[in-house]
Design a protein around this nucleic acid. Structure first.
Lengths: 187, 187
DNA sequence: AAGACCATGTAACTCGTTACATGATTTG
DNA sequence: CAAATCATGTAACGAGTTACATGGTCTT
């Protein structure tokens, strides 16, 4: 149920077209939530049907007509409700890497080590990407919007990702060390 | 694409019925991957159609007939391929909590603090749950199976979860401290 | 003139969830 | 005797992905 609310959130910043929403989801919001245009237009229809947003056709000179969506009263109530709702639905219970790890012991120590090493280097790459955002992108945006709390939330969202990646890297290192010890024991 | 492979993996440990698979997914595998019976029976049909597993009817006295599924050659090849394949599809790019955080600054400092605190206590609970598994459940199982590498992989899968939760808790504490400082500045 | 970007979608599919149906058998 | 467990599903929906179609404009 989060895409609907992501759209409501973006539209409450300012009314915009489906295309603009798609850009937002695949740039600013990319690290929290992404969406394809096909899905966005489908959800926009649903949100209009529900009476949460309204659509306005805007003629453009030259370009084809644009449909600008704006939040309505009911929609903004629903968005507020979602913002404040307690239950952070219990995610994390589906991890393809851990599923693989569970079975991987059957393929031998080398396979385990390789998989863990690969996971660690993916985490390195991810952390590096997010550090660029924290150090370069956020300060630039923060300076231009001037909302201290908002800037902090965006920065902390990226920091959250970095913290997760770093924990992954430390875990991988400890695991590899223990595998080394095990191998020593076995031969 | 992981449920199919999870099923192949379990069936390669020993042939079993859909019901047994469901139990496995919702006990041993719960923290990596879960699945409802409705989904499992659907996937079993698909796997049979693909020629990766075969079905055998087993008459039981009293009870209704059971269908036992077993991996076939093609299926075990496919499972091996999956075990070794490089690409760990880059997940993590959908986090309802971070999406909420992104918009939450608009609802004020109190709302942000509450959400972060709630996230931290969920993480505490999750970590506690996994620590029980590491300390009590895994040693018991490890003693009975006697496969050192497998036991280590299961333990490390749980440790991975603990590491993630702990990183979340540290992140939340740091964030709350910074919010405190911000509040001091503002008023 | 070619290619990127604007703008809006459709179609078909996969994967996951919720709720329910059936009917037996073992356990408290 | 009631409840949990065994065993197998169906139906309908919700959410996300891939691939493609169309036709314009702006940029190099």
């Amino acid at each position: 149920m989060s895409l609907k609310h992501g759209i409501l959130g973006l539209l409450s910043l300012r009314p915009m077209a489906g295309y603009d929403l798609m850009k937002a989801f695949n740039t600013s919001l990319k690290h929290f939530w992404s969406a394809q245009s096909s899905q966005i237009y489908r959800e926009l229809d649903a949100l209009v049907a529900e009476g949460w947003i309204k659509a306005d056709e805007v003629l453009q000179r030259g370009r084809s007509t644009k449909t600008i969506f704006a939040v309505m009263d009911e929609g903004s109530k629903e968005f507020d409700r979602w913002l404040r709702e307690g239950k952070l639905e219990r995610g994390g219970s589906r991890n393809p890497f851990l599923l693989r790890l569970f079975f991987l012991s059957g393929a031998g120590i080398g396979a385990v080590r390789t998989a863990v090493q690969e996971k660690a280097s993916l985490a390195e790459a991810g952390a590096a990407e997010l550090r660029v955002i924290v150090n370069d992108v956020i300060p630039r945006i923060a300076a231009s919007v001037g909302d201290e709390l908002a800037a902090m939330c965006w920065k902390e969202a990226a920091e959250y990702g970095i913290a997760q990646y770093e924990a992954e890297i430390r875990w991988a290192e400890a695991f590899l060390a223990r595998i080394g010890a095990l191998k020593g024991e076995i031969g």
